[in-house]
Design a protein around this nucleic acid. Structure first.
Lengths: 351, 351
DNA sequence: GTGAAAGCGCTAACAC
DNA sequence: GTGTTAGCGCTTTCAC
């Protein structure tokens, strides 16, 4: 036997209404209620109407747990944001947060629910839990971080998975992302056009997206006949705390550069602060290009020239890729266009 | 009869493992597997071990839908972010996004899952759907917006609900928020101390939090013997697009003020832009205080003096309030301390 | 210590 | 057109 619900209903706790209650009140069977509420043609229009009204007036809504169990279906997608376990940083980069918002919209539009969670960036594979436990029918992971390998394993397990990030060689999983190589190229080419020649690069190239952006950066330099100088690279991570330290040290030690390509707007802001701390002006002494074009980029000091990422479209694209995958489509990685947004930190008229 | 699962397993789709599979492989019954996996003392230690290992090696995780249905329990909380239906803006204010991150952490720490969704700010009551449908055991709503009344109704229905926002007169629901009156007072008092006398107020006082902040603002002015001048109030909403227009118009029309208290950091940035557009400097001509102390506030131009909200603690506080409520505690509103973070936009040494 | 069986709230054959 | 019934994957009494 079993009576999980048998504990006395305490105080004002409202017992959740169920179909049997509606059925009793409407004087029909539960099947009829079920059919009526699902708009089945099988049930008399008058009955259907009556049941629907009763349910609405009683504020009844169906128990989705039960429904999903019975139907073997689920309309929940897990969105997972990795975090740095070492620093235990909160989800805070405005770009990631914007992407999450965009996904929320896209899922809502398609009638899906969104389960938001975090996972240790060193154990991306743990995200599979959401699928294995049946809590979600698929997973959207925000960023590849350092574990391309884990992602490939997950894909090999046939996990419905889409990752925001760049397309890498030997990639089994489906990724959706901005065109990182192009972004790196656009940023660098713009600086070169303004007459800058000693261009630094800020970002941790262990991350696939950064690695791709650096390719674009190197390629633009080569096109212009400028040598790539490893001394001008600062592997700052995305976490603002650590990054600030790294950049202060870098700007204090290295001074022979006149421009910087940064891999996020937050990094650009931190770079600008570090430069000012050592008495260099932006864009006068050093032109700075950011990445992401976060909503606040236009209101910074100076307003940031930055590579615009298609955040608004990203949500829809990620969701479509996931749903497509579950319909059995080939999980082709997708790369979305990016463009350079010109503002003051690296203006048109060379500084 | 029923065979919802009968559709031929297509291609590589992995069928989800269930207890019966583990049971068969372990040569025991499902009951034993269930007990073993739940660490029941009733089952032989050796068997328990064996089953646990088998399950792990097969990547089995329990089906929570079924478990919850059977146990009449659910560890999912709905977090709902209202949006402006007119402008259909994305969730974008960094402050709200930070709060969501903070809640995500707090829920994870306590073993709860988070369902994130949006709701039309004019129909906050629709958030009750998550509870009514059994998808969530409680609701955390980010902001009261204009519908104190709807929130009261929801509370009257005994909905497990906690709202981020200010404590208002005749409030039936449980709110958790920063001390808005104090925030308004601190900001205003600081400006007065720097010798400013014509202090503008930017924010839509139809929103409870803004209304409370304005009380603090007015109170500080009165303390100092300065008259409150309605001409110095600009009811800019939180949406950056609309707010930008409102503020540009305001700054073009009204010029006899030397300081501004803004109800968010984003509004502060927009105000600074609008002031510059009409040739006024910050903090030289006008000192500006923001609200929220968003992560980027320190990196703006100029770095923002702002009222720091306890974002990191907010998540835990909201979650505790919700869980407490479900344990039957009185749903007392909670007000958390705030403080003024001094930076350049309204510095100490009067300007 | 373990298994058989009932039932959580719902849907969909299958009867009538 | 509507009711009866089985069963989705799990937990737990009850029997052994």
């Amino acid at each position: 036997m079993s009576k999980p619900n048998s504990k006395q209903e305490s105080g004002g706790e409202q017992r959740r209404l169920q179909m049997v209650d509606i059925a009793r009140l409407a004087g029909v069977s539960v099947s009829t209620v079920s059919r009526a509420l699902n708009g089945s043609e099988l049930v008399n229009a008058e009955t259907r109407q009556r049941v629907a009204e009763l349910a609405r007036s009683l504020n009844y809504s169906i128990n989705f747990g039960a429904r999903n169990l019975r139907l073997q279906e689920n309309k929940t997608v897990a969105v997972v944001v990795p975090y740095d376990a070492a620093s235990r940083q909160h989800i805070s980069d405005p770009f990631f947060l914007s992407i999450v918002g965009s996904i929320a919209d896209a899922l809502t539009d398609r009638g899906y629910d969104m389960l938001l969670s975090r996972v240790d960036a060193e154990r991306l594979d743990l995200a599979s839990h959401w699928f294995d436990s049946g809590k979600a029918i698929g997973i959207i992971l925000i960023g590849q971080w350092r574990h391309h390998d884990q992602l490939n394993e997950m894909a090999a397990r046939k996990l419905p998975l889409v990752v925001w990030g760049g397309e890498m060689p030997q990639q089994l999983y489906c990724s959706v992302g901005g065109d990182n190589v192009l972004g790196g190229t656009l940023a660098t080419r713009h600086l070169l056009q303004q007459g800058r020649r000693r261009i630094a690069f800020v970002g941790d190239a262990n991350l696939p997206e950064v690695w791709l952006r650096r390719q674009g950066y190197a390629q633009a330099l080569r096109e212009a006949g400028v040598a790539v100088d490893p001394a001008l690279e600062s592997p700052a991570p995305f976490e603002p705390g650590v990054a600030g330290d790294v950049l202060r040290e870098f700007c204090a030690r290295v001074r022979d550069f006149d421009a910087v390509v940064c891999c996020s707007d937050v990094l650009a802001l931190l770079t600008i602060q570090a430069l000012r701390a050592v008495g260099r002006s932006v864009p006068g002494d050093v032109a700075v290009v950011g990445y992401d074009d976060m909503p606040l980029a236009a209101y910074c000091d100076p307003p940031l020239t930055t590579v615009h990422q298609p955040v608004a479209e990203a949500g829809a694209e990620l969701v479509e890729a996931l749903l497509g995958q579950m319909r059995g489509d080939r999980a082709e990685p997708r790369t979305m266009p990016v463009y350079l947004k010109l503002r003051e930190s690296a203006p048109m008229a060379g500084g």
